[in-house]
Design a protein around this nucleic acid. Structure first.
Lengths: 339, 339
DNA sequence: GACCGTTGCGGAAACGTTACCTCAACCAAT
DNA sequence: ATTGGTTGAGGTAACGTTTCCGCAACGGTC
């Protein structure tokens, strides 16, 4: 029954017998309007199922209630999506929309994409980076509020929300030490990745507080089960009395666990194993399931966008990096209790 | 050095000594303007690094050069992201942008989100569904071009781009039969999923063309390695002479392969194993790696958006479902040649 | 009772752009 | 030389809002 074209505020005003200005005040909750008139206008608006043309609104106000989301590298599918979902939920609460683009790993494109978004009057930019290395700061060239998530930038005063890899890894070690594990080894990703580095630091720092150290050399490997299996085999050969293996990801941990079990050792009785990421298809599918760190990426995305909105609302938001600890998820690979 | 506010076309016109209208013609490549004037205007535009205000443009033209992307259920992370990437690349080529929202599995929200997008003047809608079941058609209520991807809708005349699960599964079987496999079993996902159903149909149809049939009962299981391991164990016990196992996903196949190898059988010599999805973290990490079907989701997304643009451009696009076959990727789990 | 502040409402401008129309100048054909 | 079509250019309306300002009515205060 509604006409082909959606109703305009002018039509609402005419039907309600008021001026365009008054109708605008009514629907926007402005003052200088009587309660009776407001109700009358709102009733007509509802009848026509009027909805403001956000484009026009944006033009006159200079604010679009759209934020731009820039994905540096969609290769990190698995991590970008939860962040996006978390961000999206906040965006929606605020009755904003999110336009999304990805730079396909070409960092220079971030600046170009930001420029396009600016022509669309976006009110802010969320840049989803990469915890393996730094993303270029586009804050200066963008001239609108920018928040970075899941990865550092080249500019230290940028507002960055990152996972706390140091603390996460330390938590894992704390858990293992609490269980009485003494000979702990580490199998992880490539050593040039900053997340890997931070986690190693977290592990070694925490261990040395207990006057302990990692057993054997740290196995820096590609993020691959194939390599993890080899690493585990080598490790068990070199250090047959190992009693815990901290892995840099659930993907690695799944392969390590499989290999350890294949040697006849019991998990967790003989060797406890931990992962990182709480990636369900790995963490919940091994036998026993993996103790791991959930980085709470949805929450990370949501928090980052909240900061972005604060900046959009004109509040002063201090620069620097916010670290999100994430949560330890204890499962059978370290804890023998039935889960 | 540019001023705080981006330059407007009016400013370009004034500096170039022409009227606003003429400047508009120049930058938009309209006719009724001399080549000399156009060049002069363009030069000034470049100097000021003028870029049209897309919001204003959208308001007057009624077209925003934005498309809306609706995710029915972000749970299917793994599949939605490549589709999004593929879609995005076409969107970008056309100098469009994409606004994204997800319905978090609540299908009714699709309609609401579509309404919000319409207030933003989006020129079309891409609905990313789910190959497990039907998504509600929002074509009628949206009143703008709609294309659905990765999952059927409730309305048969909708433009839908889907993976061809029937053909994909048939291709796999064809490959196995060509390798001389005679006793083929099937381990797959839950039987209420339409993709599962189609694949089973593809398998059985193709087999019966060769006067063959599946060996043993089809194992319908959750999408889980845990269940796949059990299924494989049962299968090998019931049919110890099986020589091929077709799996409904790489995730299942990885667990099945692991279990088969654990019984001392050689893959592919004794038992060939196939997956589905070409999900790298599974398909390329087993030993040997998995022969599988790559659904080419990026291409699927791109093709769907191309159709959407055709509709936006006013071309008539016939309703119905387009099936994308995907590609067979042969690896060591079926083919003994070194890869 | 004159004055002033408040309240309710509407007129008009502004946002930056495109589309439509008009107008003058020019060239070619009658 | 008049006509008629084409070309380059500009004036103006329109898109749907919000915001600024003005105006009338009203109530209270000295």
């Amino acid at each position: 029954m509604p006409a082909g074209r959606p109703p305009t505020l002018t039509e609402v005003a005419r039907l309600a017998g008021v001026s365009l200005t008054t109708a605008s005040k009514a629907v926007n909750g402005r003052d200088r309007i009587s309660e009776a008139t407001r109700r009358r206008v709102l009733r007509v608006a509802r009848e026509l199922s009027y909805a403001p043309n956000l484009v026009a609104k944006s033009l006159v106000s200079g604010r679009s209630s759209i934020i731009g989301v820039l994905l540096r590298d969609p290769m990190v599918h698995r991590f970008a999506m939860p962040i996006l979902i978390g961000a999206q939920s906040v965006v929606e609460q605020r009755e904003f929309s999110a336009v999304v683009a990805d730079a396909r790993g070409v960092v220079d494109r971030l600046t170009d994409l930001a420029a396009v978004f600016r022509r669309r009057n976006v009110d802010g930019l969320l840049v989803v980076g990469d915890n393996q290395g730094k993303s270029p700061s586009i804050t200066a060239s963008a001239r609108i509020p920018c928040v970075y998530v899941y990865g550092p930038t080249t500019h230290s005063r940028d507002v960055v929300h990152s996972t706390d890899d140091f603390a996460g890894a330390a938590t894992v070690v704390h858990h293992l030490v609490g269980l009485g594990r003494l000979r702990i080894a580490h199998v992880t990703g490539p050593d040039h990745a900053s997340a890997v580095e931070q986690r190693v630091l977290g592990i070694t720092t925490h261990l040395s507080e207990h006057c302990m150290r990692l057993d054997g050399d740290i196995a820096y490997r590609p993020w691959s089960q194939r390599w993890a299996r080899l690493a585990a085999r080598d490790l068990l050969a070199a250090r047959p009395d190992i009693d815990a293996i901290v892995c840099g990801s659930d993907q690695l941990a799944a392969a390590v666990l499989e290999t350890v079990v294949a040697t006849g050792r019991k998990v967790p009785d003989d060797v406890a194993i931990t992962g990182y990421d709480n990636w369900a298809v790995f963490a919940q599918e091994t036998d026993p399931a993996l103790t791991t760190i959930d980085m709470e990426l949805e929450h990370l995305g949501a928090t980052a966008v909240n900061d972005l909105f604060a900046m959009i609302d004109g509040q002063r938001v201090g620069g620097g990096t916010r670290h999100h600890e994430g949560a330890l998820v204890v499962r059978g690979s370290t804890d023998p209790r039935p889960s």
